[in-house]
């Protein structure tokens, strides 16, 4: 057991190294010299040379990579070219809204999607099931920002019951204003997630309901509802939890867009501003940061399998 956990934790190292290598190479090998990009269209050759030196771009690529990884291990994600601040500091300043939006979204999505998917599976083929499936396929088809604007148009501009944009910190302005402002972004971002989880829950529960041990439970005289709750749900959990983990990547992409639509000063906005400013250390640092979060969450999910299913012992 401990051995499995150790092995699984260690196995994230090569993946993290690979991600670091990808991100590093992507920025170094991409067509176009970062130095001249940073220097801008009107820079002189001297300006470019100075920036090259400053970024250490004249050194051999292996040296550059090792230096960069060495810094990474010490928790240094680099320094912003324009503000001169460490990327970690910038992330620290912007992380709160992003984390909270992600959390409210996951909680809301799971709370809505799992019961929805379960009921759809339990009544497979019924009208309710079809409505859930229609919702789910539509949820995959509407771009998240279009959905955001539709919700703003309906609830903020027409009904005027929720604010159009903005973010209020629960730590500074209090929990009420926070909820008031986070509701629309959360719902917007949740839709695709709900679609994903509800679909997987439904599929997984339907599959489990065909299993022999469900028949055994019926042979015992157990009621259908208890069969669903006690025998089916826990067996159906592993694929659902897995899809939540995979969905984290979707969530991260969605956060960037949602923050942009609702004008939330989070990490997504930081990325977009950095892209516009071509501030490469920030882009690099943020991609790494998000990737490591994804790897960490999926590590946790893998480890949670052992709690969900006693057969999984390594």
């Amino acid at each position: 057991m401990t051995r499995y956990i150790t092995m699984r934790v260690l196995s994230t190292i090569p993946v993290m190294v690979l991600v670091a290598l990808f991100v590093f190479l992507m920025l170094r090998l991409a067509p176009g010299d970062p130095a001249s990009v940073i220097a801008g269209d009107y820079a002189t050759a001297e300006d470019v040379a100075r920036i090259r030196e400053q970024l250490g771009l004249s050194d051999p690529i292996v040296v550059q990579f090792l230096r960069w990884v060495g810094a990474l291990i010490q928790g240094d994600l680099g320094t912003s070219i324009f503000s001169g601040k460490p990327v970690t500091e910038l992330i620290g300043q912007r992380i709160e809204p992003t984390i909270l939006l992600a959390l409210t979204t996951i909680i809301f999505a799971v709370v809505v999607a799992v019961p929805l998917g379960t009921i759809a599976a339990f009544r497979a083929g019924s009208l309710l099931d079809r409505v859930v499936m229609l919702f789910s396929v539509s949820g995959f088809s509407v771009p998240v920002f279009v959905l955001g604007y539709i919700l703003i148009y309906t609830f903020s501009m027409s009904l005027k019951i929720l604010p159009v944009q903005g973010y209020k910190s629960p730590l500074v302005e209090g929990f009420g204003p926070f909820l008031y402002h986070i509701t629309l972004p959360t719902v917007t971002l949740s839709v695709i997630f709900i679609a994903l989880i509800a679909r997987m829950t439904r599929a997984s529960v339907i599959e489990v309901l065909e299993e022999d041990y469900i028949r055994t439970a019926r042979a015992k005289g157990q009621s259908e509802l208890t069969i669903l709750m006690r025998h089916a749900l826990r067996n159906a959990a592993v694929p659902v939890v897995t899809v939540i983990g995979i969905g984290i990547a979707l969530l991260i992409g969605g956060v960037v867009v949602t923050e942009s639509v609702f004008n939330i000063p989070g990490l997504g906005r930081l990325v977009l501003d950095a892209v516009l400013a071509r501030d490469y250390p920030i882009i690099q640092g943020l991609i790494l940061f998000f990737s490591f979060i994804y790897i960490f969450i999926n590590l946790m999910i893998d480890l949670s399998y052992t709690l969900l299913d006693p057969r999984i012992r390594y």
């Binding site: 299993e211 022999d212 041990y213 028949r215 042979a219 005289g221 157990q222 006690r230 826990r234 067996n235």
Partner: peptide, 25 residues
Amino acid sequence: RLRKLRGEKMAMIFQEPMTALNPVL
């Protein structure tokens, strides 16, 4: 009524005992 009879008056065992038992209980 059938649910009550199953278990109390009639019971069944199956071919494949591995799949007939719930793996997580």
